[in-house]
């Protein structure tokens, strides 16, 4: 009993908490690691280019920031309606509206210069060659800590998710991008597949530094009054709290199969969700849909993670990665 007493006296205080995580790189130099002050990374397409969220809090409090997905040429996106709601989730079919990589470099990247947190550019393509072009354009851009290769967008025809459902394609594209781009590479995977570990393994084998999972789940909603699909694009991608158990399962399932870090995301709303993803095996955790419904969520979630650490007397957050196995 005296032992327990002394343990209580040495309680970890808030000042001692260490929320930082390291997303290791497969490349030999340690310089290529992605060091995050905490595991929270904004999910692509849910935070604009950061300016919009800046009205609610200083985004430099987060671990890293991911830009809206960019393509080689400017895209005006799909017809509206582009968003539908379902219980605890949303179905979107934005269709990668973006200014194209040239304008991204000219107009968007300069806006991120005042940020002190690592910036990741999310890239999408309609062909394998698109990914090569994007990697070339972004290679050497000092504003960026890395790129997130979106092999999983369900909302563009003839690309995106198609690449992400075949391990061979994931391997080929990742390998090409790896040959061209020297920064940190995260490959974002689709859950619309029988076994996500096959594409995760392919990405790892091709030299990806990390995998992100999951992108949205293919879904639709029918307007029963109009008796027609609600989304102009008919199908969209489901995100939000509804998908979280699926995402957690996929992270858990993949954790022991690969050696590279996992960025886990899908429906994170609270600190407890971040903890759940990390226990399943995620090194970093994405926040997406919550930014749309509660734009000030970032700092709240960090605070809730700290509260969990204090409650469970966890000094280093990284110590819980994969601890549920």
């Amino acid at each position: 009993m005296p032992e327990k007493q002394s343990k209580l006296e040495q309680k970890i205080t808030k000042a001692e908490l260490n929320l930082s995580v390291v997303m290791q790189s497969q490349q030999k130099s340690k310089q290529n690691n992605l060091n995050l002050k905490n595991p929270l990374i904004t999910a692509s397409g849910t935070c604009g280019n950061g300016q919009e969220l800046a009205n609610f809090y200083d985004i430099n409090q987060l671990g890293a920031f991911t830009t809206k997905g960019i393509t080689v040429k400017a895209q005006s996106g799909n017809q509206t309606p582009r968003i539908a709601e379902t219980s605890a989730g949303i179905i979107n079919s934005i269709g990668l509206e973006n200014p194209g990589v040239e304008n991204f470099i000219l107009e968007v990247l300069p806006e991120t210069k005042e940020y002190t947190l690592p910036i990741l550019a999310n890239i999408s393509g309609y062909s394998e060659q698109d990914f090569e072009v994007l990697a070339e354009k972004l290679e050497g851009r000092e504003e960026l800590a890395g790129i997130e290769v979106n092999l999983s967008c369900p909302n563009i025809k003839g690309g995106g998710m198609i690449f992400g459902t075949e391990p061979e394609k994931v391997y080929q594209i990742t390998k090409k991008v790896r040959e061209i781009y020297s920064g940190y590479i995260i490959v974002k995977l689709t859950p619309n597949i029988t076994d996500i570990t096959t594409t995760a393994l392919a990405a790892e084998a091709a030299g990806a530094d990390a995998v992100a999972m999951i992108n949205t789940l293919s879904a639709m909603k029918i307007d029963i009054e109009a008796q027609k699909p609600l989304l102009a694009n008919t199908f969209g991608g489901l995100s939000g709290p509804a998908v979280r158990p699926i995402a957690v399962k996929m992270v858990y399932q993949t954790f022991k199969k690969i050696d590279i870090p996992i960025l886990g995301l899908g429906g994170v709303k609270n600190g407890s969700d971040v903890i759940e993803f990390m226990l399943a095996g995620a090194t970093a955790v994405g926040i997406g849909t919550i930014n749309m419904t509660d734009p000030a969520a970032g700092p709240r979630i960090i605070k809730e993670v700290e509260e969990y650490m204090l409650k469970h007397q966890i000094k280093d957050l990284s110590s819980i990665i994969g601890a549920a196995h």
Binding site: T46, E52, I90, N92
Partner: peptide, 9 residues
């Protein structure tokens, strides 16, 4: 979607 300009819905 968001009302603040991030989601492009």
């Amino acid at each position: 979607g968001c009302g603040i300009g991030v989601c492009l819905s």
